[in-house]
Simulated assay, not measured.
Amino acid sequence: MTRRAVLPALAVLRLHLACGLALLTRLPVDWLLPASYRGGADTQPPPPWPLGRSIWCWPLIGGGVGAVTGCVLVLLHRVHMPPLVAACMALAAQTLLSGALHEDGLADMADAAGGRTRERRLEIMRDSHIGSFGTSALCLAFGIRVAALAALAVQPGKVGMISCILAGVLGRAAMLVLPARLPPARTDGLARALSPLPRAPLGVALASAGALTLWLMTLWGENWTKEWATGTHPTALSLTLAPIIAACLGVIGMAWAARRLLGGYTGDVLGACVVVVECLVLATFAALAA
């Protein structure tokens, strides 16, 4: 029996959380790791990290990243920072927290679209340099999110905060759909670590993301009760479905592009999916709040 097999349930949960935080953020996670994973004088190598089993907490971590973004946005606006400046600072905080991991994936995938063959595209995605396609994709992604956050910053109540949290939750939930539906494009890296994707953690991740979405959209809609009563705002049904539809469209588009260009998914594809879904969800919230 391996050391991993004898870990108590709480230690396993902490290990899964450490895996998710180490991948999706730049927060220190050593304090969460069981002793057998921290290394030290023991010459025996630590067990492999259960990255695939940790996916149940990824939407929750995404919600936490979104909460930090929303806090910065709301607090700066309340101290009379102009909405555009507050939006830029909030997105800067999010980028620092995530280490621009997802933006790196977006840039790599955009550059790869210029390749003529699948092999050449995968080679381009390995290149650390950024080209004109990647630069354009990053500028558009940051521009869309900043504009949406600036529009949400001036809204009443909890609108800005809830929108940021839901964008984080739906973005990280969306990235899990791709490895569930596509084969890995490579035999190494993150794509191989997630294949085959464990079904039980995937179900927990999607179920928790769905429950959080419904609950937070209920809170979001409380700000618009009077508008619903007078018929000057979209119905509660459209309010709830709109961000979910936006996230689904983002996933469908990314899955189509990944299959057509690469024949499957890579870690860069998953990162790009997060950014695309966040852009669509935040833009949808900005439109609903207008």
Rank of each mutant, 00 (worst) to 15 (best):
A191V: 03
T25D: 09
E123G: 05
V169M: 04
L15Y: 02
L75S: 10
W220N: 09
T43P: 08
I252S: 01
C71M: 15
W220R: 05
A148D: 11
S132L: 13
W49V: 01
M109A: 10
G231P: 01
L106Q: 07
G143P: 03
R4F: 14
A92Y: 06
L288M: 13
M125L: 08
G115V: 02
L280T: 04
R260Q: 12
A289G: 02
A209F: 03
T117M: 03
R145S: 05
P183L: 12
A185T: 00
A174D: 05
I165V: 15
A113P: 04
W58D: 06
S208W: 10
M175T: 01
I144E: 13
L101W: 14
W224F: 15
I144P: 06
L138H: 11
A107V: 08
R181S: 13
A207Y: 06
C88D: 02
D30S: 13
M109W: 14
E119R: 06
S54N: 11
A137D: 09
R14Q: 14
S195M: 06
D30I: 06
L282P: 00
T95A: 15
G70I: 00
W228D: 12
L32A: 10
D188C: 02
S238R: 15
G263W: 11
V29L: 06
H80Q: 10
V79S: 09
L280M: 15
